[in-house]
């Protein structure tokens, strides 16, 4: 079935510099699925007079407004911060997690990256470890359990020494920060032909493993996190490099190499005692 969605009139046209732009008409193919156990299907919607200044999610908001004003159930999708940092938004857009713009989360994708008349396919992340909850909303709690397994540095408030007693070279701090920038969105898993969570897990192992504070738990951490990653049913990394391309924080697959090295040394080293945890 097909719906027509009219975008509310805006003050846009008064804008001198926006005068040239005009609304686009788009055809959306959206995955609808009532619940985890229901079977889903694609629905077609028309989004008409879409402003190029809209974000992708705002375009969906408008579609939903229209659906609801007709008493129909809106398309369920996750989002919260809408500024690319919380990692909640998670849409497969025309076969690319987070859509065509590089280093951009779905919520920061703007409609000007599409052209009038485009048809857009919108799907949820697909992975055994990310079951669909509804429509485009999936359950990513597997990521939390990977962190639970060892993605932390044990430190009790009140205990710590003065912060400046721990020196960290700027380069190390910067590398740690690059890895720590992960927003836990799951696009890496969604993109990986093997449904592997290696980029996510490697990023955390790299962030903590680089810092002096992270050393005592380093072996334990990598062994436990990798075991949990497998436990959750993610695939293995064969270095297709897809994840790195779609990661909104442009995290490099070097973190996966690092995870593998730490895993190897942990197994060779005394830290290899798996029962310790």
């Amino acid at each position: 079935m097909t719906h027509t969605v009219a975008e509310p009139a805006t003050a846009r046209d008064e804008a001198p510099h926006a005068a040239s732009r005009r609304g686009m008409n788009l055809t959306l193919h959206v995955w609808r699925q009532a619940g985890p156990r229901e079977k889903g299907r694609f629905e077609q919607y028309q989004a008409t007079n879409v402003s190029p200044d809209m974000s992708f999610l705002e375009m969906l908001d408008v579609v939903n407004e229209e659906l609801m004003s007709r008493g129909q159930e809106p398309i369920a999708f996750d989002s919260d911060c809408r500024e690319g940092i919380c990692g909640m938004c998670s849409l497969m857009i025309n076969g690319i997690p987070h859509g065509p713009s590089h280093g951009t989360a779905t919520c920061q994708l703007h409609m000007r990256t599409f052209r009038d008349g485009d048809s857009i396919t919108i799907e949820p992340w697909r992975a055994r470890a990310f079951p669909v909850i509804r429509d485009l909303v999936v359950d990513r709690s597997a990521f939390d359990r990977i962190i639970q397994a060892g993605g932390y540095i044990t430190a009790t408030p009140g205990g710590p020494r003065d912060a400046n007693e721990i020196l960290v070279s700027k380069t190390t701090a910067d590398m740690a920060m690059d890895a720590a920038a992960c927003i836990g969105c799951g696009a890496c898993v969604a993109a990986c032909p093997n449904g592997s969570a290696s980029l996510f897990t490697g990023a955390k192992i790299t962030h903590l493993g680089l810092l002096p504070q992270g050393q005592p738990e380093r072996n334990r951490r990598v062994l436990a996190m990798v075991a949990q990653m497998d436990e959750e049913g993610f695939g293995a990394c064969t270095f297709h490099g897809e994840c790195q391309e779609v990661c909104p924080k442009e995290i490099s697959i070097d973190v996966i190499a690092r995870m593998n090295r730490d895993f190897l040394t942990a197994n060779l080293g005394s830290g290899g005692k798996h029962d310790e945890s």
């Binding site: 497969m92 025309n94 396919t121 032909p193 490099g241 897809e242 790195q244």
Partner: peptide
Amino acid sequence: GYARKQRQAA
């Protein structure tokens, strides 16, 4: 699987 998937780097 996906209805539509674009390879990025593979």
